[in-house]
Structures are given as structure tokens and as C-alpha cells.
């Protein structure tokens, strides 16, 4: 068995980001469903949150390769 622990580490780190992105979009959809007229600002905020959370997963991805 050969390989790098980085890959496993990345897999574990991505779980958090995956849950986060799911929560962001799920609650975002719920908010839009409750108040469809506030769709514009809600969408903006959804994508800000999505970008922030995705950044963590991407940092993990970068580190998995950079520290390889």
C-alpha cells in the first residue's frame, strides 16, 4: 500500500466544507421560499457564504498538493 496521507486528510477536511455548503444553500432556498421578494439580496448573501466556505475546502486542496 502506497500513497499519501494528504489525500485522506483532504477527504476528511472536505466533509466539513460539504456540510457547510449544504447548509448554506439549503437554508438559502428555505429563505427564498419564505420570502420570494427578497430573492436578490438573499442570493448575494448565499453566494458570499458559499464562497467563504468553499475557500476552506480549497485551502485544504491546495495544502494537500503544496505540502505533498
Amino acid at each position: 500500500m502506497e500513497g499519501s496521507l494528504n489525500v485522506i486528510g483532504y477527504g476528511i477536511s472536505v466533509i466539513g466544507a460539504g456540510i457547510g455548503v449544504g447548509i448554506v444553500f439549503g437554508l438559502g432556498m428555505q429563505a427564498i421560499a419564505r420570502q420570494p421578494e427578497a430573492r436578490g439580496p438573499l442570493q448575494t448573501n448565499i453566494y458570499i457564504g458559499f464562497a467563504l466556505i468553499e475557500a476552506l475546502a480549497l485551502l485544504g486542496f491546495v495544502l494537500a498538493f503544496a505540502l505533498g
Binding site: 464562497a51 467563504l52 468553499e54 475557500a55 480549497l58 485551502l59 486542496f61 491546495v62
Partner: peptide, 17 residues
């Protein structure tokens, strides 16, 4: 860090990754 360093970095890396 988040506005001027991580933001452009993730912007590029998201697409690449």
C-alpha cells in the same frame, strides 16, 4: 486576509480545482 488574499486565490483555485 479574506478580502485581498484568500478571495482572489480561491476565485482562481475553485475553477482550477
Amino acid at each position: 486576509l479574506s478580502n485581498f488574499i484568500i478571495r482572489p486565490a480561491t476565485h482562481a483555485i475553485r475553477l482550477f480545482a
